[in-house]
Design a protein around this nucleic acid. Structure first.
Lengths: 329, 329
DNA sequence: TTGAAAGCGATACCAT
DNA sequence: ATGGTATCGCTTTCAA
């Protein structure tokens, strides 16, 4: 930058003003500076700028795992919004471990990120972030709410989605609807889905004894047990991706794919190629990311009001498996 | 840091040495410094450190799209290696546009990344990166080689994978093997797969007239045309994810899923749930990312030899569709 | 082994 | 509107 100033025959201050689109610069001088910039191939040093300004035009993203397609989709949504402001994104995986999440937050903080967008690791205490918030770091949680901290959060309507599935199956004549949920009850999304399922059953005046919490590996056995039980279900809701896939396997293996209605939570590729097509409750991860980024930038733009909670709708995509009638058995 | 120095009763220099695990520090003083760090909740300012050192402990990743599961998997592999060194990753999407790729590279450069890991946008001239390389930025390309620049690159064995598919089908008695590839011939991976297919056919002494380049949307029509042709194929290789899914649709719609053997390039979720299970050529995106990160850090550690080219094996995963015999028709 | 001080590159206040 | 300059927080010779 010194060089640019020298070549353009102006002061450092002026160059800085031009580079940052400063308020009042003689167009003539500005042009000279631009030329010098071109000539020297000058590149702005954001590190130095950050040091002085205390803003880095970057934000940090913490996911369970950056390699997970669901989080990758969120990442994409965030990037879309961030890009429009020239903000770059750091991304890291917490591996669902609170300690690792905290390490990452520290590392991002040390790099002076302007904001943090976090899918909170289960079981963590997020009070440690209070400090960053105090220093002006914008903070938004995504997909799951934080614990011990009041902050903006963007969620999917998990309970509503599960209810949607129940309503849909009831509309197709089912009254014995089983639910295979994720074992880990502490997971917010899993708990919400189960809650939505239960409340919907109650609302329809249906019995509530057909839910099981499983690991993906236990899915097959759970289905076997259910269909051999005294009151076998005529429909199944699988509460999570991996469980859905495992359920599909089990149903195919048992030749039940045309006999047991099935709605899975979360859309999966090839869902429309299996027979029958898999009816799912789809989330909008891209929207989750976009919305979260928007809240984050509003904070950066000065919003200082109370924490906001945004809930995004889930939708049911009918493809066949969820439209099997209860009488088909 | 100034505060820490004051509290610990030592100089800035000493604090810096302690914080960075400097070479020679009196354990006693070091302890005092650590205490002060704890007490004040001091956080290292990497931006300032970068400014002085010219190293930021961060690298930039440029993908077609961060939301794409394939790239997300690469991202995961990179992160695994980077994390071990305390290096953080920026990630951005080029949207397959050379200009946007370049903008991102500039933005990363302005933030002083130590290295750049790029999935090159098709049709771009990567000479512009020469400058970064000259200033010591480590550069590695992934999944596709760059143009007009000699740099480290990590690739999948696309041609080998396609050949694997042909060999497998030939072994199951097929001699009329069709190939549906991605329309865009400029895409390196697409071109390589087609080449692998052709060379394998030639090696087996088979005719070469059954390849078609399509968009996913054209897949169904292409399959129809092929099976209605004079010399209908008994087997099909789909060269890309979306084409594979479209092919699956078309085969199901035409009731051909048990009659036309099918091998898809790239593994997909639920591939083992469709009937028959989908045989695929699987890549190792995680390995691609890990290997690329390793090369990058070797450069950072001082390797200054010639550009390296690492090619990762692809593997065939048999699930049924690729094992249909030619006589089943 | 420790400290003093210069400097990394850019910004913003204060003058002019 | 423009320029001089202190300053951001840290690292690193150079001396002691």
């Amino acid at each position: 930058m010194k060089e640019v100033a020298a070549v353009a025959g102006v002061s450092l201050a002026t160059v800085s003003r031009v580079v940052n689109g400063g308020p009042s610069v003689n167009p003539e001088l500005a042009a000279k500076v631009q030329d010098a910039v071109q000539l020297l191939g000058y590149r702005h040093n954001v590190a130095a700028s950050s040091l002085r300004r205390g803003m880095s035009a970057s934000i940090g993203l913490i996911f369970d795992d950056v390699a997970n397609p669901f989080f990758a989709a969120i990442h994409g949504g965030v990037e879309e919004i961030a890009r429009a402001r020239g903000v770059l994104t750091f991304a890291g995986s917490s591996d669902e471990a609170p300690t690792r999440e905290r390490e990452l937050a520290e590392a991002f903080g040390a790099r002076g990120v302007d904001g943090l967008l976090i899918v909170p690791a289960v079981g963590g205490d997020h009070g440690y972030l209070q400090r960053d918030v105090a220093t002006g770091v914008a903070l938004v949680f995504v997909d799951r709410p934080p614990r011990f901290l009041d902050a903006d959060v963007v969620l999917s309507d998990n309970a509503g989605g599960a209810a949607l599935a129940v309503d849909h199956l009831v509309a197709h004549g089912h009254s014995r609807i089983a639910y295979l949920g994720d074992r880990s009850e502490e997971i917010y999304t899993a708990a919400e889905r189960l809650r939505g399922y239960r409340e919907a059953l109650t609302r329809h005046g249906l019995a509530n004894g057909l839910s099981r919490l499983v690991t993906p590996g236990e899915t097959g056995a759970a289905i076997d047990a259910l269909v051999r039980g005294a009151e076998p279900p005529t429909a199944l809701i699988s509460g999570q991706n991996l469980v859905t896939v495992a359920a599909l396997h089990a149903l195919h293996a048992a030749g039940l794919q045309e006999r047991l209605a099935h709605v899975g939570f979360d859309d999966v590729l090839l869902a429309d190629v299996v027979k029958p097509g898999l009816t799912v409750i789809a989330q909008d991860p891209d929207g989750l990311g976009r919305r979260a980024a928007e809240l984050l930038f509003e904070r950066l733009d000065g919003y200082a009001g109370p924490a906001r909670r945004v809930v995004l709708e889930t939708t049911l995509i009918a493809r066949g498996s969820g439209e099997l009638s209860a009488t088909a058995r």
